[in-house]
Amino acid sequence: MSRHPPFKQVEATRPEFDATVQWSTTKIPSPDWQPGTGASGRQDLPGVKEGLWTAEGGSYKEIDPKEASVGSIYKMMISAVTPRPIGFISSVSPSGSLNLAPFSYFNMVCHNPPIISVSFTHPSPSELKGTCENILNTKNFTANIISEPFVEAANYTSIDAPKGVSEWALSGLTPVKSKVVDSPRVGESAFSMECELEHHHHIYNDAHERTGTIVLGRVRLFHVRDDIIDDTLLVDTGKLMPVSRLGGITYGRTTSTYEAPRPVWEKESEKEEVKEALRKGEQKAKV
């Protein structure tokens, strides 16, 4: 028996999805921040007034993964390492069966050559997740970015259906034939990558049981919808409307941003506040 009330009952108490909230860019939290001053100290941010965002602020738990349950470590990590991009991975089995599933252990790792990573946790030491098994057998897959207009369909593909059941059919999304690889891309996705398997590495726990596999895929072809990309190949995040993964069953929207230029040493090194920050840093290092 679940200790949580039925989800639909909980959802019914929440405000309606607000489609009027559009992409916006604000100032950074503390535009007058100076080098060497640490946390901004902005008092209206939660916990700042209480001193929680300083080196001495708050008390800390130390969690040794050897002494905690696997389930609790999973729960902690997915709720802390956020937001995570989601790889909506399409694969095909050697017999031609199509598979589609979302994975939030996903990211880009290189742009020259373009390489992305996706990792899988497995049902048992002797069994691979269907998507992983397909990739290792056929050496290809496609990765699609999930956007708000089809997040419900994408989420439904996370169902624990047995092998052989088509998540494509359950989602109602459209498989579009790829140009370079066998795995189709998601027609509704505004950004898709056709990938060939570059490398894989199995992961073993302390009991020497295989618990996961990380896959590196080399992107052989990108598909980007015309209206979200400019002539410099910069993708407009506001139009892409990407969905991120947070803890538990929670997804995140990307609707508000702020910008922070990357500092250039040649210019910054001559500023008095930078020189003073370095002097103070040297003094701390001697303590």
Rank of each mutant, 00 (worst) to 15 (best):
F106A: 07
I89D: 02
P102R: 00
T13H: 11
I89A: 06
F7T: 13
T174N: 07
I229D: 07
W53M: 10
T20P: 06
G252V: 08
L234C: 14
S72C: 10
P123V: 01
K129E: 00
E282A: 15
V180W: 03
V92Q: 08
V70C: 08
H202Q: 15
I86V: 12
H201T: 09
S59Q: 06
D236A: 12
L52E: 02
A101N: 03
N107G: 15
T157F: 00
G247Q: 13
E188F: 00
L136H: 10
P114H: 08
L216I: 05
I145W: 00
A154F: 04
Y251P: 14
I89R: 04
I78P: 12
L246Y: 05
S269A: 15
T211H: 03
T20R: 13
G130I: 01
Q9I: 13
T37N: 06
M1H: 08
I86N: 08
K239C: 13
S79L: 03
L240T: 07
R84T: 10
Y204F: 10
K239W: 13
S95I: 00
A12E: 05
S97T: 11
V243T: 14
E268W: 07
F150M: 08
T237M: 14
G71P: 12
R3P: 09
Y258L: 10
M193D: 01
A80E: 08
A12Q: 03
Y105I: 02
L234V: 10
R218G: 07
N205R: 07
E148D: 08
W168C: 12
D227Q: 12
G172V: 02
L170W: 00
S90I: 03
Q34Y: 01
G58H: 05
A260I: 11
G281T: 01
H199A: 15
P83T: 07
E127G: 02
S91V: 01
G247W: 02
G57D: 03
I63M: 11
S104A: 15
T25H: 05
R3I: 12
T138W: 00
Y156I: 06
I229G: 08
F103E: 02
D44L: 07
L136V: 11
P242H: 04
S171A: 10
V92K: 07
I73F: 03
Y258T: 15
L246I: 08
L197N: 10
P242D: 05
E259A: 13
V186A: 00
V180Y: 06
L246F: 09
T26L: 13
P31D: 09
R225W: 02
N155I: 07
